[in-house]
């Protein structure tokens, strides 16, 4: 199995706090990978280190064998990594279609001159790709609505569709099930599994064990910035360290 994403001794300190402490792991091609941990375990920091929003204090990140540590977020996106945000960041004053088109146009590329002449082929490509994603997440009926007017659950799918419109090699979802009820979570789990089955490598960052335990092939558990487990869900579930991290006083 080849690794698509490798983390090597990744550390980030804020003042005296080691938010992420020497984390080494890898995500394999085609895997459905989960990163979990109790609140404050450093998941979001680790995530930001991977996607280029925060530079690491030490260690390195390799994506498809290439070192991407210290690259800016948009360059990392161009390498084929796509992410969603924990606190739902759609573009509220743009239509659903336009939201998704931003994901597509970032990769396909638009410039001031290509929008004046000669950019028809690219425009068509952006349009078609956006439309395809729109249908994939079942938001075609809402294409023309403002994103701000969508329900919470639909905005979640919109954000995922926007990330998919980038045609990434690795999709990282930051707490996609937060704020969803059980049936919505089940539906989302199915959607993510389908994505993975169609060949996309997916990394889930979750606080809640439920979703991740059900669908992930492999899990890394973080607690206080350190990796405390890295195995298949069945093993992780019985790991005394994990149980302590979740049930003990750390939360």
């Amino acid at each position: 199995m080849t690794a698509i994403l490798e983390l090597d001794g990744l550390t980030r300190t804020f003042g005296g706090l080691r938010a992420v402490d020497n984390v080494t792991t890898q995500v394999n091609q085609g895997e459905l990978f989960g990163l979990i941990g109790p609140n404050g375990a450093g998941k979001t920091t680790l995530f930001n280190l991977i996607s280029g929003f925060t530079p690491p204090s030490s260690g390195e990140v390799r994506f498809k064998g290439e070192r991407i540590t210290g690259l800016s977020a948009h360059k990392i996106a161009h390498k084929g990594m796509s992410r969603t945000f924990q606190n739902l960041r759609v573009f509220p004053n743009m239509t659903v279609f336009d939201n998704i088109s931003v994901g597509a146009l970032g990769m396909i590329g638009v410039g001031p001159f290509s929008s004046l002449w000669g950019g028809k082929a690219r425009a068509r490509e952006i349009s078609e790709r956006s439309w395809e994603m729109l249908e994939k997440v079942g938001l075609a009926d809402h294409a023309d609505d403002l994103a701000a007017n969508l329900s919470y659950g639909k905005r979640k799918y919109l954000e995922i569709a926007r990330a998919l419109a980038m045609k990434p090699d690795l999709l990282i979802l930051d707490e996609p099930a937060a704020g969803m009820n059980d049936s919505e979570t089940t539906e989302l789990a199915e959607f993510i599994t389908d994505l993975n089955k169609s060949g996309l490598t997916v990394m889930l960052v979750e606080h809640d064990m439920g979703l991740v335990m059900g669908i992930c092939e492999r899990l890394v558990v973080l607690a206080s910035g350190q990796k405390i487990a890295d195995d298949v869900p069945k093993v992780v579930r019985q790991d005394p360290g994990v149980l302590e991290a979740y049930l003990g006083g750390d939360d």
Partner: peptide, 12 residues
Amino acid sequence: EDDQCASAMGIN
């Protein structure tokens, strides 16, 4: 709308 989010979409 959200420049940080736009950069995650690959926009410089």
